[in-house]
Design a protein around this nucleic acid. Structure first.
Length: 893
DNA sequence: GAGGTCCGGGG
DNA sequence: GTGTACGGACCTC
């Protein structure tokens, strides 16, 4: 029999720690295995007298370890202190430090110390064939075993997991506030089960009876009932929308308040607990994993709002039943029908949470990461990148005889942060050549930073410290343009480069297997392989950032600077080569990519062919494993500024065809304080400009929208802005539109006054008052037929996003607003003229490159409104053939 | 632009 | 539990 690891902890038993591993057997039973033979330990440089006599100490052993920062040939003589109780480590450690000593690896969680030493990672499979039944009821799992050795089995795939989705409803004693567990009871909880529980796949528990409702005498009994249900169903995953920061802490705190032991973990001796830290709750339910679709969806999808209703509509195509918070108490205390409505509302929330969990494969990425870094799934979900990387590194460094320092102290981090602000440089970003471009090849470096790390053997263990005496000769050292130097691999191969080599090779293997699986249409296999390659990719890309991160144990700014400086050198060399050797212009580039403009009459295929050849050539020329790749073509490319552009993008597909889409970087189309009209107009204009290349049409489109606005022809829904009332309207510092609307609504109808936490929709109406005072409830505006302030919408909602786009095309605001017909004429003449095909003999690409004053020679990208220069000279077309063409640009005002 | 502050989801 | 430490949008100088 096999078991997959989901969680781990330890307990003290007869004065010794007992490791417990929780998971699922391959046939889907919950299981816990006990492992006795592991003791906590840490390292110190000197052994103080008091430590020798400490009751905790079992053994102090002299050992040799390598310190991981700076290349060195010597080993440190250290003392490995083995003790009885892991929880006593912090006080021993701190006492050592207070006495002037140094401690190492004295802040590693015991479960991870064990797992890492055993070579055991999260979600791995182990063999239970030599396990013996453990006659204990200390854990609630279906199976319990004792094992004496850990035998890891190489198996991909996951055990079948049981999922429980839940959602609570509670009524706030102060109707204007979000309920708080210290005060407000839970009135009902909906439960949805993967598979079935007691023959049903979902039901509601409540303190009021009803159809499809399991009723309890009071809240306390209901919560005890919940505990029983959880333990009997025995889920591996607990899910729910915003469960991390609302439902789960609420349930736990409510149970604590009512004196109910929170016994729904997988061990009878550990209760579920929750704790708030830095504004966020962290829930701990041993043996089970809490998964919050809200948190995961926020990371994976870009929406304006992440309400369950909005997210479900966007991702599942389903709206949820709408019950206003203000209605809830009425429904709860109301008729049978009212109550049924509340029940149905409650159950829908759990159903949707379960569907979001189940249908979007949200967990896959985290499973992939967990498998690579070894952190337990819950810690990958809740924790940051630092923990992932450090757990991974600790295992690899230890394996190679290195020791890890403690986490940096607060002072160290502050100091590092300061140094970093002054001295850490980033990637190289070219100033984009302004204006519209065509046939732009995008070439980028494959995994640039990981590749640089491998190429130049970049690692804390290979970093040269100039003041050491055991450094190799200079020819054995890679010196970076700006930052650290590193010994070459023949002297010592760095640990980080080794890890990356392994990971990158593995990933290309996995991707090959994936192609095969795709061609054979093996869905489950594709999913598993994709999970794996994604995990590898995310972890590989995290090393660079980690070494320059002030909280890292192996932080060193010279390493960060070495990587980025080699990166800058590489991209500049690439730009030079393309321009000098091939004669093409690199019009933009950022960190690991260059964009090359090729002749406009080339087909996509021709562009691709030349780009591949250039990339191959440059790859040949570059050191080590650095590789430049042809990625895609921007048929049209409009840069706005560094890191901001819009492009019509064509990516080659395997079958030789092209997939096409609009690429936008740094251009926000969804912003909370913009109404739908803003986003819609921006998107449409970008589409017209890029796909149709018709500036005139885009301008007209904009002007039409403005016209529609001033004539009141735009549906009000498109003009509504929504903001959450986070505090009482009167306690907002300045005047804020949504707070003002809330005040007005309260005044008009005190019963319907918006509560704190409610989302307030508003529109801006005509008037002379301060903007915020002109914010109004859309329903009220409709009812009273009040006019909206079209000027506001134009200036604050339409213009700001669109202006930057037109600015990049040299179309000014006044032109955009259509002040004078000749602007449009002009626009069509230049923008279209520039792009007119070569058969058209009026203006050709070669002829017109811009404009120039025929008097003082000042160049213009666009003529002035008058057609004359400040000096009084005329603005004429300029061309590379002559100083200025004979055509005079006439512009009438 | 850099630097500081607010707010999210949930009832 | 040998602990934890958000992140993006927005506003102001």
């Amino acid at each position: 029999m096999l078991m997959q690891i989901l969680d781990a902890d330890y307990v003290m038993l007869d004065g010794k720690p007992l490791i417990r591993l929780y998971g699922k057997t391959d046939d889907g039973k919950s299981v816990c295995v006990f492992y006795h033979n592991f003791l906590p330990y840490f390292y110190v440089d000197e052994v103080p007298e008091w430590l020798k006599d400490d009751r905790q100490v079992i053994e102090i052993e002299e050992v040799e370890r390598i310190y991981p920062i700076f290349y060195r040939t010597d080993k440190m003589k250290l003392h490995k202190v083995t003790i009885h109780d892991p929880s006593k480590t912090p006080e021993l450690r701190d006492k050592v430090i207070r006495g002037g000593g140094t401690a190492y690896e004295a802040d590693i969680l015991f479960k991870y110390r064990f797992m890492n030493d055993a070579g055991l990672g999260s979600l791995m499979w182990i063999d239970l064939n030599n396990a013996t039944n453990a006659g204990t009821d200390i854990v609630r799992t279906e199976r319990k075993y004792t094992i004496n050795e850990i035998n890891i089995v190489d198996k991909v795939g996951n055990a079948p997991l049981k999922v429980l989705a839940l959602d609570i409803e509670c009524i706030s004693a102060v109707s204007t506030e979000v309920p708080i567990p210290e005060r407000d009871p839970i009135i009902m909880i909906s439960l949805v089960f993967s598979g079935k529980f007691q023959g049903r796949d979902k039901f509601v528990i409540s303190t009021r009876p009803g159809n499809d409702v399991k009723a309890y005498a009071n809240e306390k009994e209901m919560l005890k009932g919940l505990i029983d249900i959880i333990n009997e169903f025995d889920p591996d995953i607990l899910t729910g929308y915003n469960i991390n920061n609302f439902d789960m802490p609420y349930i736990i705190e409510r149970m604590q308040k009512l004196g109910i032991p929170t016994n729904f973990t997988r061990a009878t001796d550990k209760r579920a607990w929750t704790r708030k830290f830095a504004g966020k709750y962290r829930n701990n339910i041993l043996g089970r994993v809490v998964v919050d679709p809200f948190v995961l969806i926020k990371k994976d999808f870009s929406f304006k709002r992440y309400t369950l209703d909005n997210v479900s509509f966007k991702l599942l195509g389903e709206h949820k039943e709408d019950v206003k918070y203000s209605e809830m108490e009425g429904l709860w205390k109301g008729s049978k029908n009212d109550f049924e409505r509340l029940v149905s509302y409650n159950i829908t929330d759990s159903v949707l949470a379960m569907r979001l969990y189940g249908e979007l494969n949200l967990l896959d990425k985290y499973i992939g990461i967990s498998r690579i870094c070894g952190l337990l799934l819950q810690d990958v979900l809740d924790g940051g990148e630092t923990q992932r990387i450090e757990n991974f590194l600790l295992r690899e460094f230890n394996k190679n005889g290195y020791i890890f320092p403690l986490k940096p102290t607060e002072e160290e981090m502050m100091e590092r942060d300061k140094q970093r602000k002054i001295g850490l440089k980033g990637g190289f970003v070219l100033d984009p050549v302004p204006g519209m471009h065509e046939n732009v090849a995008v070439l980028d470096f494959k995994s640039m930073y990981p590749s640089l790390i491998r190429t130049f053997n970049i690692c804390p263990t290979t970093l040269v410290n100039k003041s050491r005496t055991d450094n190799p000769s200079p020819d054995k050292i890679h010196e970076s343009p700006e930052g650290g130097s590193f010994v070459k691999p023949e002297i010592r191969k760095g640990i980080v480069p080794q890890i990356l080599e392994r990971l990158m090779n593995e990933r290309s293997q996995v991707k090959k297997l994936m192609q095969k699986a795709i061609s054979e249409d093996k869905k489950e296999e594709i999913r598993e392989l994709n999970t794996k390659q994604l995990g590898i990719k995310i972890m590989s890309n995290a090393f660079y950032g980690h070494m320059g991160y002030p909280r890292a144990r192996i932080y060193n700014m010279d390493i960060g600077n070495a990587i980025t400086s080699w990166g800058r050198e590489t991209i500049q060399l690439t730009k030079r080569t393309i321009e000098e050797k091939y004669g093409y212009k690199v019009i933009y580039g950022d960190t690991d990519s260059v964009m090359v403009e090729l002749p406009h009459d080339m087909t996509l295929e021709e562009v691709a062919e030349i780009s591949k050849k250039m990339s191959d050539d440059i790859t040949q020329m570059l050191p080590g494993i650095m590789e430049l790749e042809f990625e895609k073509i921007f048929k049209r490319f409009l840069p706005l500024a560094k890191k901001r552009y819009a492009a019509w993008c064509f990516t080659p597909k395997r079958d030789g065809s092209w997939s096409e889409k609009i690429d936008m970087k740094g251009i926000e189309t969804v912003r909370r304080d913009w109404c739908d009209l803003s986003s819609e107009t921006l998107n449409n204009i970008i589409n017209i400009i890029l796909k149709e290349n018709d500036i005139d049409k885009a301008v007209k489109y904009f002007q039409n929208t403005v016209k529609g606005l001033s004539e009141g022809k735009i549906p009000m829904e498109k003009l509504v802005v929504t903001k959450t009332l986070t505090k009482k309207p009167e306690s907002y510092p300045g005047v804020q539109p949504h707070a003002e609307v809330a005040k007005k609504m309260a005044k008009r109808n005190p019963a319907e006054a918006p509560n704190v936490g409610e989302r307030i929709s508003y529109v801006i109406v005509k008037g002379t008052q301060l903007l915020s005072h002109r914010a109004e409830d859309p329903a009220y505006v409709k009812e009273k037929g009040i006019q909206l302030d079209s000027n506001y919408y134009m200036e604050n909602q339409l213009l700001p996003p669109v202006e930057r786009i037109f600015e990049a095309l040299d179309i000014s605001k006044s032109e955009l607003m259509g002040k004078g017909r000749q602007m449009n004429l002009f626009t069509s003449m230049t923008m279209k003229g520039r792009k007119k095909d070569r058969n058209n003999d009026k203006l050709t690409e070669e002829d017109v490159t811009g404009f120039v004053c025929n008097n003082c020679g000042r160049p213009y990208r666009r003529p002035t409104l008058t057609g004359y220069c400040e000096c009084g000279g005329k603005i004429v077309f300029s061309s590379p053939k002559g100083k200025g063409s004979k055509i005079t640009v006439k512009r009438n005002i």
